[in-house]
Design a protein around this nucleic acid. Sequence first.
DNA 1: TTAAACTTTCAATAATTATTGAAAATTTAT
DNA 2: ATAAATTTTCAATAATTATTGAAAGTTTAA
Lengths: 167, 167
Amino acid sequence: MEYQEAKEKFISTWGSLGTMWGINKAMAMIQALLFVSTKPLSMEDIMEELQISRGNTSMNLRQLMDWGIVTKEIIPGERKEFFTTEKDVQELARQIAKERSRREIQPVIKVLKEVSSIKDDKTEKTKELIKQTKALHELTENADKMLNKLINQDQNWLTKSLFKLIK
Amino acid sequence: MEYQEAKEKFISTWGSLGTMWGINKAMAMIQALLFVSTKPLSMEDIMEELQISRGNTSMNLRQLMDWGIVTKEIIPGERKEFFTTEKDVQELARQIAKERSRREIQPVIKVLKEVSSIKDDKTEKTKELIKQTKALHELTENADKMLNKLINQDQNWLTKSLFKLIK
DNA sequence: TTAAACTTTCAATAATTATTGAAAATTTAT
DNA sequence: ATAAATTTTCAATAATTATTGAAAGTTTAA
């Protein structure tokens, strides 16, 4: 497999993985492209390489910046804006975990807490609803605590922890 | 908040969480409904309660069975088929982790391995592609190993491990 | 200030994914 | 074997989500 083929395979695989986990394809592909690029890329570069429109590129770059995994680079003497992504996989994982926790998991935990706290009228179905949502609440909260631990720890915590678990 | 409201809130929240993580809404809602039901439900019951069509219900029940988290129940004297979901959250988490690993993560690991093994022609861009996909390969493999550990361990391993990590 | 270079926005459109509903298939009871 | 009950399939349709492209907006250089 040659460089170009390998690169394309990586980018498109990353794109479809994104799709499976609720992340839009263009967004995942832009991140993948930047991830293996040796230098910052302009919007033109990205449009060209991925064959996507200016608007699409602009919107998805913005989203990636909102997620905190892509940053604008100012290149002296250049009028265009250039972009880079976090190159360190650990930091990347931390950032994604942080955002998914904040945007998606926390709101669900809130609802699970509410639902599992309804008044127990002693009917079987109410007891079941409370019991099951409580169990889910606990599991979700534990998983989320783990993510947050991951987010706030030093650089190598993730690898060390994973190693501890699998050893 | 009354029972019915709480139940609906739980089901629709679970549905939208599913969507965010690439799982279709009806599938997540059916699972949620069964999860808090006190008894097995028929297709009619599910269609009625979630206001979805017969075809949709049938297809999504099948998918949930493929995922191994919903099973058919035979109820003596009844002609219809009835369905239940795994009620234990730990087991549920294990099952989902197992399937997502098998269907989604393993194929990506395979591609990352291929891409990171291309011949190093000593150019900067090839070296970067190899380095970055190798790093991602390692991280993904570790995370997947953790998932598989989770899958194959005893019932309480998940809780214990999470506790160890966050304590 | 002006205008060229560049980026953002957003309504229109396309692509994808989910859902319906009715016909076909299957199962069960007699 | 027959037919009623039930489930599955799948082409058509609807709903959702992603993408385009051009107009509006912004920045920069002279």
